[in-house]
Design a protein around this nucleic acid. Structure first.
Lengths: 195, 195
DNA sequence: TATCCCATGTAAGTAGTTACATGATTAC
DNA sequence: GTAATCATGTAACTACTTACATGGGATA
């Protein structure tokens, strides 16, 4: 039984505190989230796999009119595995971005529609950026932990910086594309008015 | 039979010029490449699927002591499909980056190993950046096409900008992490020397 | 002597998505 | 009355990866 990256995402969250499968799914979708996503249909089976491998344990909590809650906790074996995996070498990520693929065929498409498409994505990444900036303000209220490399807040701050940089750059790129298309639209409309 | 994003990658390349499956695989791995990757074991079956759907045709070329070459060409149907798809709305990308997941657990790991890991990735993304800058210089030698939104070079320039921004930002983030870890390593070693 | 280049594919396996199932409670 | 929240899961499907197959010619 191999340990997948999703397993390390779950272990990484459980190393900070205990969660139910449901809560793990929620934090992964939360603003700062992670650079990872998963559905419950993947999370639940994955957690029980981790349990049979002895990397996590759970405590069942009975509830009123709802299925039992399973509160998962990382084991020492889980912690040890996570610690060594965290610094093991990996290959750089394979990037698969559909919008970039669309961009490659923009030369054949309608410029106005193209502009609208990129404007939508500019808005999206700009609003993500603002969410991350809000988290940054909150973290910087207690700056002590940010310089302590043994604190989970230190690590959270690191990935937040990646989020900020990524969204800022993505939004700027979209804006640049919109401006270029806008320019081209104006030029062609004035050219047709001339003729 | 559904049309996947890889299909549009292949159609996007074939809309510019004809290629064999082998050459398509090579351009996808080339410096500027695409924000997409695929193995031959996926490309070849995908091309024959596109052929049965009438989106591409091929011409077989016999070779000396080698299997026949199949030179693929996009059809009018393929062009029309690509043109409309290019501006159809999509959801923002799901980002899955293993290094960011590792970063989240760095607080439990050995700082020296962590620094080495991020230094390696800084080097990688910096060298990618330099490759892209070389392509940029080459493209900017003939700036006419760069402003013509109906030219494939215009679209290539757009995705090149994304590549430049992405690699620049990624390298800068890694460098920032290395500096933070370096600082923490120095502080802890001077603290242990004091005691 | 070994590895890369050319050129095509098949077969088996894995990680992820979509759809389905249950069911009471609260918010719009 | 419609959707979201809590809470767990199974089943079927799709996209992508890894391993295997062929084989001659050029480069290190």
């Amino acid at each position: 039984m191999t340990v997948t990256t999703l397993d390390y995402v779950l272990l990484g969250l459980l190393a900070v505190k205990s969660y139910t499968g449901y809560d793990l799914g929620r934090v992964m979708r939360s603003p700062i989230s992670f650079f990872w996503e998963a559905r419950y249909s993947q999370i639940y089976p994955e957690l029980s796999k981790l349990e049979t491998q002895g990397l996590v344990t759970y405590q069942a909590v009975a509830q009123h009119e709802l299925p039992d809650k399973k509160i998962y906790t990382i084991t020492e074996a889980g912690r040890a595995l996570l610690r060594t995996w965290a610094v093991e070498p990996i290959e750089p990520p394979v990037i698969r971005d559909e919008l970039v693929i669309k961009a490659y065929s923009l030369w054949m498409a309608d410029p106005e529609s193209a502009r609208d498409l990129f404007h939508y994505h500019e808005q999206y990444h700009f609003s993500k950026l603002q969410q991350y900036e809000e988290v940054q303000r909150r973290l910087e209220e207690s700056p002590e932990d940010l310089n302590d490399p043994t604190s989970p807040v230190f690590a959270q701050y690191i990935i937040l910086q990646r989020g900020l940089g990524f969204e800022r750059e993505y939004a700027a790129w979209c804006q640049w594309v919109v401006a270029r298309l806008e320019q081209a639209i104006q030029l062609s409309s004035s050219a047709s008015a001339d003729s």
